[in-house]
């Protein structure tokens, strides 16, 4: 696979994204230089290919990704990998608010910390954070896993649906309708296998799995007849 270098600088973001697509579709791997933390770099990437941002990126890097392997050398802004349905996004530094928001599949691997509301409204896929999670990690997440090797901030797992937040470190506080459960051995094996795949050290971790208490789910009766009085 040949490598194509694309410089960002102050050029038109639409043209830059077009160049990414053309290069990836032509079978090149792409190295992006002079990123200047620009927003919307690498939006709507194709089902395969590799792109390496040699610097920091702004909002929505890898947003709506369908399968490209994305690597960010430094830090990423808000909404990294939002609504992505496939591929892997690796952030070597920190990732801002709403990492993996509403994602439908694929994997996001953050080597530093993540900002607030990591995995908010995610529908599937995995987010692995080697550092710490900000507040309200997993807010209203439907399905999928958020796995943190560090600690979790306030209101962790707030208003979860069927998603899971795994935390190896401390949990500052649980969010509304969240509870800690003991993970099954099989589930731990699954998480360990994923971490091994990412090249993370194999060792014992005192996992706490946070899931929904499901009290908010049944705020009202599901019996249709009870609504007929209105």
């Amino acid at each position: 696979m040949s490598e194509k270098v694309i410089q960002v600088g102050h050029r038109d973001i639409r043209i830059i994204n077009q160049e990414f697509l053309e290069a990836l579709e032509a079978g090149h791997s792409v190295v992006v230089t002079d990123t200047l933390s620009r927003h919307n770099l690498g939006v709507g990437l194709p089902r395969s290919g590799k792109i390496h941002f040699d610097g920091s990126v702004g909002y929505y890097c890898g947003g709506l990704n369908t399968g490209t392997d994305v690597r960010v050398e430094n830090n990423a802004g808000w909404g990294t990998g939002e609504a992505m349905s496939g591929g892997i996004i690796t952030v070597n530094g920190y990732s801002g608010m709403s990492t993996g928001a509403a994602m439908l599949g694929g994997l996001i691997h953050v080597k530093g910390d993540c900002g607030p509301r990591c995995g908010v409204a995610m529908k599937a896929g995995d987010i692995v954070v080697e550092g710490n999670l900000g507040y309200q990690a997993g807010f209203m997440a439907h399905r999928g896993r958020i796995i943190a090797l560090g600690s979790a901030g306030p209101s962790c797992g707030d208003a979860l649906w069927e998603a899971e937040v795994w935390v190896a470190g401390d949990i500052e506080s649980l969010g509304v309708d969240a509870k800690i459960v003991e993970p099954e051995a099989e589930e731990v094996e699954g998480v360990d296998a994923l971490l091994k795949q990412l090249g993370l050290e194999e060792r014992f971790r005192d996992w706490r799995k946070i899931v929904s208490e499901q009290k908010l789910w049944y705020f009202e009766s599901r019996d249709a007849n009870s609504w007929l009085m209105i």
């Binding site: 973001i13 927003h39 919307n40 939006v43 909002y59 947003g63 709506l64």
Partner: peptide
């Protein structure tokens, strides 16, 4: 920024 993202997509 979000609107720009949707335009690019």
């Amino acid at each position: 920024v979000k609107i720009e993202e949707l335009r690019i997509a």
